[in-house]
């Protein structure tokens, strides 16, 4: 401050001072902007780094076998270096499939109800609970599955269909997963349905269609891309869910033949065996290959659904 006063008594130096300050400010801006760019590039490249890292670690098991063999073989003998992922892939598919079959109709109906039929009060009451549900940690879903779903299946559902079931089954995994993906599907469908143009509904209603007919023949058709995107996103979410599924699925490495059979999804395989993987050759590589598999599938599904959703958004904005 003193420097400033002294300088400013003669006209010339204050100019230098201001120029200097300006240069410092611009330099600061430039440096910070480069730093931010660096952070941005680093965090975005995480996608590639993860992919490359996992692939690099999978090379040993891939050299020992082929993609086709790894994906279609059912023989899992780590000590002999034989890794067949088929039962695990099937376990994942069963659990995910059951979850989607349960969750999708429920969520579509719910979203239709709160957007098209119910008073806006219903939405204002329901949505906070849906958000709370999405905040509940996976392990709590797992505990709930063990305490509620397993006994339910064991005592009340399975006896009607099969002779004996412990309850630990792909059905239990599917139900728990379905509840876990409720919030995701409902919130996306809500957004999609709310952007449906009113004129479209009016036109259909004016032609004498009932509200349900309008929904069935106009809204659902128009909202189909959004529903597909939500489903794809939900599938990718369900694919990677680990702990909740692991706790209720039974973790038996055979291909399930009914919903009451135990299954062993890929994420559970990774989570359950990390302890031994360093002591057996190729085992860590095989588990990293499982992670790579999950990564690739989920990456693709995510990209597809995000592209559909952003297209929809742009179309609605236009």
């Amino acid at each position: 401050m003193i420097g400033y006063v002294i300088l400013s008594q003669s006209g010339q130096p204050i100019n230098y001072y201001i120029q200097l300050m300006q240069r410092i400010r611009l330099l600061k801006d430039k440096i910070i902007s480069k730093l931010m760019l660096l952070f941005t590039i680093l965090s975005v490249s995480l996608v590639f780094i993860i992919g490359i890292g996992l692939y690099y670690k999978s090379i040993p098991v891939l050299q020992n076998s082929t993609w086709g063999h790894l994906l279609t073989s059912s023989v899992w003998k780590p000590l002999k270096g034989l890794f067949g992922f088929y039962p695990y892939i099937m376990g994942t598919l069963w659990v995910t499939g059951i979850a989607i079959i349960i969750a999708l109709p429920l969520c579509v109906l719910t979203s239709l109800y709160i957007v098209e039929y119910a008073h806006s009060r219903v939405r204002r009451i329901l949505m906070p609970f849906v958000n709370l549900l999405s905040g509940i940690p996976p392990v709590i879903f797992g505990v709930w599955g063990v305490l509620f779903i397993i006994p339910l299946i064991q005592d009340h559902i399975a006896p009607h269909f099969v002779e004996f079931s412990t309850g630990y089954s792909v059905l239990a995994g599917g139900i728990v997963l379905a509840v876990m993906i409720f919030p995701l599907i409902v919130s996306i469908l809500n957004e999609v349905l709310r952007t449906m143009p009113q004129e479209l509904k009016d036109a259909s209603l004016a032609l004498g269609a009932t509200k349900w007919e309008t929904i069935k023949k106009v809204i659902l058709r128009k909202a189909l891309p959004g529903i597909i995107a939500a489903t794809v996103l939900a599938i990718s979410r369900a694919f990677g869910e680990t702990i909740a599924v692991l706790m209720v699925c039974g973790n038996n490495a055979v291909v399930p033949h009914s919903v009451f059979d135990a299954g062993y999804p890929l994420p559970a395989l990774i989570a359950n065996n990390y302890g031994d993987m360093m002591s057996i050759p190729l085992y860590d590589s095989a588990l990293m290959f499982a992670a790579l598999l999950l990564f690739i599938i989920i990456l693709l599904f995510n990209i597809i659904s995000r592209i559909i959703l952003s297209r929809l958004e742009r179309k609605m904005a236009a």
Binding site: S43, V44, L46, V47, I49, I50, G53, L54, L233, S236, R237, F239, G240, E241, T242, P267, I270, A271, L287, M288, A291, L294, F295, I298, L299, F301, N302, I303, R306
Partner: peptide, 15 residues
């Protein structure tokens, strides 16, 4: 970043 958000935690754990 949306895609990164969708990557499951088990993959982050493995990585």
């Amino acid at each position: 970043f949306d895609v990164l958000f969708g990557i499951p935690s088990i993959v982050y754990g493995a990585f």
